[in-house]
């Protein structure tokens, strides 16, 4: 690389170039076209996700109430409930870990260490698969266990103070009082949703209302779209790992650039998760 630069400088010695003008036949961004393309693809993909998340924001703000995330996401495998946000924190750790192993794979690639690349890519794939497994479990719990679908959202929040007139056999007992903003889950029994009756402070008897439909649909849609990115990332990682094993990239002699490119993609998936995690689980 260095000798190349010296040569181009010498070559241009005779011509009258304006100061600072680029002298061609080199890469002004010091990056190959493939890497640049990956960056710009990720930029445009970021705008797709931004479109989704901004739509999420608009729909959420257009609703009088929105489900409380640490109430909705509070189950763990093994029948543990009331463990708010623990499972998703584990999922996030898995994704961060797989990002870290990916960085290691890229670093080994820069050193030209074939076995190192393969090893760390393998760990990355495992991380991706665990994340996908976690997501599958989370979806199953929401759909099967709590009966949330893209059409119906049983997670609501009270918009007034009141007292329950009946219990649901889970957490709510008849006579229990609640305040504005208290979250609730409408349980699904024997083919129908059991909306509990309550009396508000004005003395009117009402039923628990369903939460905003958009919550379920947006959750499944946006995490699904992210999950699809993780899945395709795993597929690409697998292909590239196999190629690396055959020594294909070693022979190309470009410091495992393909690994670097898929690395960018993988970190991007992690990056998107930062924001999905923020808007769905934290805010």
């Amino acid at each position: 690389m260095i000798t190349e630069h010296v040569m181009t400088d010498e070559h241009n010695h005779g011509t009258h170039d304006t100061p600072g003008s680029w002298n061609g036949a080199a890469e002004p961004f010091k990056a190959s076209y493939g890497k640049l393309m990956m960056w710009y693809f990720l930029l445009s993909d970021a705008f797709t996700f931004a479109g989704f998340l901004i739509s999420y924001g608009a729909l959420r703000l257009s609703m009088p109430s929105w489900p409380l995330p640490d109430f909705v996401f509070s189950t763990l495998p093994g029948g543990i409930t009331h463990a708010p946000l623990i499972f998703v924190t584990i999922m996030t750790f898995v994704l961060i870990l797989s990002s870290v192993t990916m960085v290691r794979a890229v670093q080994e690639g820069h050193r030209g260490n074939q076995s190192g690349v393969v090893k760390w890519m393998f760990f990355t794939i495992v991380g991706g698969l665990i994340f996908l497994g976690c997501q599958a479990w989370e979806w199953t719990t929401l759909i099967k266990g709590e009966s949330m679908t893209v059409w119906t959202n049983p997670f609501g929040r009270h918009i007034e103070d009141g007292v329950y007139l009946e219990g649901d056999g889970h957490d709510i007992k008849a006579g229990q009082a609640f305040t504005v903003g208290a979250p609730y889950l409408i349980h699904y029994h024997d083919g129908h949703y059991n909306q509990l009756k309550y009396k508000n402070s004005a003395g009117e008897v009402k039923e628990q209302a369903f939460g905003p439909k958009a919550f379920g649909a947006l959750f499944f849609f946006i995490t699904g779209f992210h999950g699809f990115h993780v899945f395709s990332g795993v597929v690409f990682l697998l292909i590239i790992m196999l190629n690396a094993m055959t020594g294909l990239y070693q022979n190309r002699g470009n410091h495992y650039e393909m690994v670097e490119k898929i690395g960018l993609y993988w970190h991007f998936v992690d990056l998107v998760w930062v924001f999905v995690f923020l808007v769905f689980y934290l805010l």
Binding site: A58, L59, L61, S62
Partner: peptide
Amino acid sequence: FANEGMHWN
């Protein structure tokens, strides 16, 4: 978009 969302509300 946020402003619009609140406006719909």
